[in-house]
Every structure is written in C-alpha cells, then in structure tokens.
C-alpha cells in the first residue's frame, strides 16, 4: 500500500465520521441528502460482499466494516432518529435515473459475468455518481453549511488521492483496472466545481453559497 492509497482511505473515513458527528452533535440532518446516503450504503453493501467470501487483511476487513456500519448509521439518523429535521422537500433528485442506467452498465461492461463481479462493478459505477443528489440539493437551496462542505471536500479528496494511487501503481507495479480508473475519473470530475468554490470562497465563511 502506498501513501496515496492510505491517505485516500483516511480521507474517506474522515468524511464519513465528519458527517456522522455533525448530524449527531447538532441533532439535525438539515442540508444533508438522505438519498445520497442511501446510495452510499448501497455502494458499500454491494462492494463489500467479499467480506463473506474472502479475507484480505485485518486492515481491509476493519475498514470495510466501519464504512458499512457508518453508512447505515447515517441513513438511520436521517430517516429515523432525526427524521423531523430531514429536508425532504429539497432532496428531490430522482435516484432511479442513476441506479437503473448504472445497473444496466454494470451488466454490460464488467470483468466477468458473475453475480459478485457484477455487484462489484455496479458499486464502482454507482459510487462515481452517488454524490449527485447531495450536490443537486445544495444547488437547489443555494448554500451549504461549512461542516457539510468539509464533508464533501474529504469525500472528493479521497477519490482524487485514489487516482494518484492508480498512477503510482501503474508506474511501479504495472497495474491498472480500467473500470475503476474511468469511474474514479468521473467521480473526481464531479467534485471539481465544488473544490474550486471550496478553495476560493470557503475560507473564513460560515456558509458556502453556490451560484445556481
């Protein structure tokens, strides 16, 4: 494991924990897209089914369990515990427009036509676009709380670091996985506009306003 992969994982973990703590501490999930969080729970569930079939390392298993656990805890907080604060009226992205095409693509373009492999591919494709309901919600309300922007920053940073990890692995190990790389590039590009606003306008402000 190289340093980019490790910092990518830690950045991903930071994002997940930041969101969970924000909701827990403020007793509110205002401004958070429950739909994006359901998609992420779906991503982790379909990708980490190999927890049941193979053991890779203690690190790998631990992180997967934490990611899955946190994803479902977040969904629980949004849709059950703090349901009253959930901003459903602004969370109107049609997720079937993501899940159905992504599911179809996973069937058509994969490494091997087997159930686990198709689910893994599905999770890779779905993850690349799972943040869209959240970005859509922010563009609709026109603003995001600072802590939410930190969450998005770490989530975007994670995939950007993975891209550097894959460049590193290509040069030093001759390794590359086209499905992961293409989806990873798409995922990172979706955050670019946000990164720009985060860096140029986020400093010293309590809220990030996104021009619609």
């Amino acid at each position: 494991m190289n340093i980019f992969r490790l910092t990518g994982d830690l950045s991903h973990l930071a994002a997940i924990i930041i969101l969970l703590l924000k909701i827990w501490k403020t007793r509110s999930c205002a401004g958070i897209s429950g739909k994006s969080q359901i998609l992420f729970a779906l991503v982790f569930t379909s990708r980490y089914l190999d927890l049941l079939t193979s053991f890779i390392s203690l690190y790998n298993t631990t992180m997967k369990v934490i990611y899955i656990g946190c994803a479902y805890a977040t969904v629980y907080l949004i849709y059950a515990k703090f349901k009253a604060t959930y901003d459903g009226n602004h969370d109107t992205f049609r997720v079937e427009f993501l899940v159905v095409p992504v599911g179809g693509l996973a069937f058509l373009v994969n490494h091997d036509f087997s159930p686990l492999e198709i689910l893994w591919t599905f999770s890779i494709y779905l993850e690349s676009v799972a943040i869209l309901p959240q970005l859509f919600m922010i563009s609709k309300t026109g603003e995001a709380e600072t802590i939410t922007t930190h969450y998005l920053f770490f989530l975007g940073l994670y995939r950007a670091l993975y891209l550097i990890n894959w460049i590193w692995r290509f040069y030093f190990e001759g390794f590359f996985d086209m499905i992961a790389i293409v989806a990873g590039v798409v995922q990172t590009i979706l955050y670019c506009d946000f990164f720009y606003l985060y860096v140029t306008k986020g400093e010293g402000r309590s809220q990030l306003s996104i021009p619609t």
């Binding site: 390392s57 997967k64 091997d112 390794f175």
Partner: peptide
C-alpha cells in the same frame, strides 16, 4: 474477473 489487487482496495 477483476484482479485481487483492485479488490484489496476499498
């Protein structure tokens, strides 16, 4: 099939 090398990633 995707290699074990990519499956090792999260």
């Amino acid at each position: 099939e995707a290699t074990d090398s990519i499956k090792d990633e999260l």
